[in-house]
Design a protein around this nucleic acid. Sequence first.
DNA 1: AGTCATATTATGTCTGCACAAATTAACCTG
DNA 2: CAGGTTAATTTGTGCAGACATAATATGACT
Lengths: 233, 233
Amino acid sequence: MNEIAINSWAGVRAELLRRITERIWKPGETIPGEEQLAREFGCARATVNRAMRELAEAGLIERRRRAGSRVRVSPDRRAVLRIPVIRLEVEGRGLGYRHRLIEQETAMAPLAVAARLGIEPGSRLTHLRAVHLGDGRPFACEDRWLNAAAVPDFSQVDFNAISINEWLVLNAPFTEGDITLSAAAAGPREAECLGIAAGAPVFVVERTTWNRGEPITAVRLTYPPGYSMTTRL
Amino acid sequence: MNEIAINSWAGVRAELLRRITERIWKPGETIPGEEQLAREFGCARATVNRAMRELAEAGLIERRRRAGSRVRVSPDRRAVLRIPVIRLEVEGRGLGYRHRLIEQETAMAPLAVAARLGIEPGSRLTHLRAVHLGDGRPFACEDRWLNAAAVPDFSQVDFNAISINEWLVLNAPFTEGDITLSAAAAGPREAECLGIAAGAPVFVVERTTWNRGEPITAVRLTYPPGYSMTTRL
DNA sequence: AGTCATATTATGTCTGCACAAATTAACCTG
DNA sequence: CAGGTTAATTTGTGCAGACATAATATGACT
């Protein structure tokens, strides 16, 4: 057997990855234990552990105590989506960022929003609508419901100077959240906001966040046709 | 100061997270070094390192040698998308899975596909079209271009028995790939395949994969209105 | 045979130490 | 003072050893 010492966790990971992708270890098969691999590579068990932990996080192997590690049959690989502040997303595409607040009011939360946030139907929330512009053209349309009680000092903020999006990221911490991605036909208000035809296909990102169980905000971001999110595997 | 010992990396992470979300350490601020925190928590530096590494991976802090670690100003949090085999996605929703191969041919790759894969325009590739069904109703429409040379033994496979999607996951390993998510209007063939009106908004997932630089496949998956991808933050 | 307690075993984590790598701060020289 | 070299500091990683935890295998007992 090869007696070449691999003594970096990245090196071990690369070698294990090679054996998996080249089917030296087949899907479903149990692979050698940490101790054995450590002996083979001439490194410490902790090093092998680090490498295998990364492979497990990437969804390539499954690890169970006492049972050992095995190659996953369906490696449902994970793609990491980065969710930046919209201003940075716009600027990252080389466009000049501006935004415009369309509407700000206090109103009863729609049932769907109340359900997503897990609050009493009929609760009063702050409703904000805004449009984000890239080089003056609509980039995304924002429709947000905000639990003002959870973010005390926001009544004094001028949302023409800083976007709600960005202000919240900086001032309203959250501990849990979920994101839903979908496609939809643009509603009349979204179409107007984005300057497109009603019914045109839009990319929709819906995000809901809580802080230690307390609902913070539910936002629907609508992107016009042509927008796409890309990530590497 | 509190002299409570925290000696698990998860505990340290939780405490650091608390100090960040409660703005004890403000965005942009430098936080104490590993050694100092290790003394404060009464644990080893490696334990603090593990906790801080996780926070850095989650996008909450930025770490640089010699300069120390600081709280990110815009914590562009990362959401992890799991990309399973479609059969498992369908079955995970409690639906019975079936699929149907619509077309299989060898043809010249369209320019867009050749560009995505990084091959000569005009190269001949295998073109496959199929529909995935959940409880008999269209769940997703698949349009795939495959570099048959990279997957030698596929001509003998009966894609009515196993879906191309699943067969490739099991038999065509890849080392790199990218995914693009977008919304589009259903084209005529997609509309027919999904049983919806042409022009209806569809959710599009485009995936391209390579194996050590060699192009493997480019696939466009189209999901009918109502489909959504959800992930926790 | 079936059931429950116990031993075994692979992974998970912590510790204390050491050195490597990266980057900034300090210093020295012209 | 400018510019470049050197030192100091912080994170990154490796190692050996130990114990913790989870899950399976074994064996005793009914």
